[in-house]
Design a protein around this nucleic acid. Sequence first.
DNA 1: TGGGAATGCGCAATCGTTTGCCTATTTTTT
DNA 2: AAAAAATAGGCAAACGATTGCGCATTCCCA
Lengths: 337, 337
Amino acid sequence: MEKKLPTIKEIAQRLNISISTVSRALHDHPSIGLRTRMAVKKMAAELNYEPNQTAIFFKQRKTFTIGIILPNLREEFFSSAINGIETIAQQNNYIVLIGQSHDDIENEKRILETMKKHRVDGILASISKNTTQFDHFEQMKSYDIPVVFFDRVPDVPDVHSVSCNLYHSSIEAVEFLINKGHKTIGYMQGPSTLGIKNERLAGYYEALKKHKIPVDESLIVSTDLSTKSTEEALDSLLGKKKKPTAVLVFNDYVALDAIHYARQKKLKIDKDISFVSYANVSVTRYLDYPPIASVEQFPYDQGARAAELLFKLLDTKTNRQDIPYENVVLKSELIVH
Amino acid sequence: MEKKLPTIKEIAQRLNISISTVSRALHDHPSIGLRTRMAVKKMAAELNYEPNQTAIFFKQRKTFTIGIILPNLREEFFSSAINGIETIAQQNNYIVLIGQSHDDIENEKRILETMKKHRVDGILASISKNTTQFDHFEQMKSYDIPVVFFDRVPDVPDVHSVSCNLYHSSIEAVEFLINKGHKTIGYMQGPSTLGIKNERLAGYYEALKKHKIPVDESLIVSTDLSTKSTEEALDSLLGKKKKPTAVLVFNDYVALDAIHYARQKKLKIDKDISFVSYANVSVTRYLDYPPIASVEQFPYDQGARAAELLFKLLDTKTNRQDIPYENVVLKSELIVH
DNA sequence: TGGGAATGCGCAATCGTTTGCCTATTTTTT
DNA sequence: AAAAAATAGGCAAACGATTGCGCATTCCCA
């Protein structure tokens, strides 16, 4: 068992030809005659030869590996996104390295560093909730490692990204509530860093404006995504003299916590208070009281598109620095449950 | 930007010393004097030198990469397991490559092949539901790539594995139901391939026997894990003259489908029929009608232990073939909701 | 039949690092 | 003060594959 793996050299020796001939023969290089080519291939098959990829990686300065950095694998959104990425990666004969930041920028930096060391050819990233500056990603440029952000994309101009347009569906979501007769609609936003260009909020404002509902800033609360913080945020909304009858919530996970808490407080869901959120996670299917609607963000597609963009970058021979930054924006869709 | 990365050679030239000296200096080799060592390190820092890992991987015949093969990232169980693995991998300065089989053996083979090509140092795997033979894993031995299975482990002797003992907690689960007064208890199992040594079923039998409840084989049904199949299985149970008042179910996802379907059928959960299952996924927290109990299988720990075992194997200098196969079995725990 | 294309293949450098072995200088020992 | 030993560092091979260049044959056509 402890046998050394056969190399190109081994084949060459057995056939008494040079290793360059073997290499070329295996690659169907035209300068190698048919008979030797056949002989080489036959011998390669016999010996069960497989090229040593690490040698090739080294020589070619390419590893056929892309790195994915994201906050958390456990969120359905991200695991779906990975599926999209994996599909495209496979088509391109690439393999994926995964690192979770667990929403911590230090982890993010460490992972990036490790991936750089491993010489990944490119990186796909969804930033952590406390990533406010991007030097670590910026730095990848000097190593000629392209980075494409998806979903949680930094709000700076000079990056490639794929994300969802949440502005329109946020308007749609709020209008959906308004049409249901709601007049006092709260908004529970996520960590402020996650939405510098806060499309959700902008849509919220726009919808209210469109329907001539005055904005009450105290109806806008924040959660850091933890259960506790969400509960506090909801408390704050419920503590108002004029309580909201509906709340637009940052995402389904937060909504689940909010709904759970509201029910503990003996509120009747969809009677006393309704929730609409984002992500459209599949588990809501099993719930008796899911958000009445949720904005589908098509994680699989986002992942796939981001991967496609990355491979486009990897394919370009020209100086990558010259490629204009591309910011793909996908449509989202309000799904009513 | 297009600058070439500095190499050890670059440093050597600037300092007018040999590259071997540079290499040794950077590794604090004792045969290099203090002054040159300092000079080298200073220059390395100045040039922002970073060793080319691909060269090192190649030379060392090691990639500091392990591959994880599992059915599906979207199951919380597996993403938690990955967390455990990632933690241990990080401690060992390893990085993880991930591939999903999507419960298809062909994918599993393809992934394994790719990982082999990429020369991973070792592999952690949870087999797909239709993997009944293991040649592809077996083959890794001849490449000296150790494989450790976790959770879904093959039922053959000569493998390393980490799994949960479901026998005892299955007994516990059934006894829990018996103590609640249930006399007719069904069992819905998963794909037969996933449990050749079917501990769940064995525990089910044992508990009944212990409490002198005769086994009714028609109370044992199977699902391929799809919603449809689960519904059919439940139908079969409900079609009996003597319907079960409780069902032990393969896992929470199946249980969720079963409960959902039972409710559609107007059954009162925990009144007409109760469910106990496995996995203890966190979302049940938000459900009005979760399984009344679920067997926690500690995916994080399983992942971590499997990774530890793998690193132990990777650390051994001796011929790896000589290491006795290790089969770690962790305790599971019935969690009552 | 002689000279210029094709055709078929080998040499050797290269990628960046590590490491066994050897040499030269300095230090220690007796 | 000469021999032995320790110290410091260089040479070159090796890891496995790719590739530009050059050197033989063989072939074709005049």
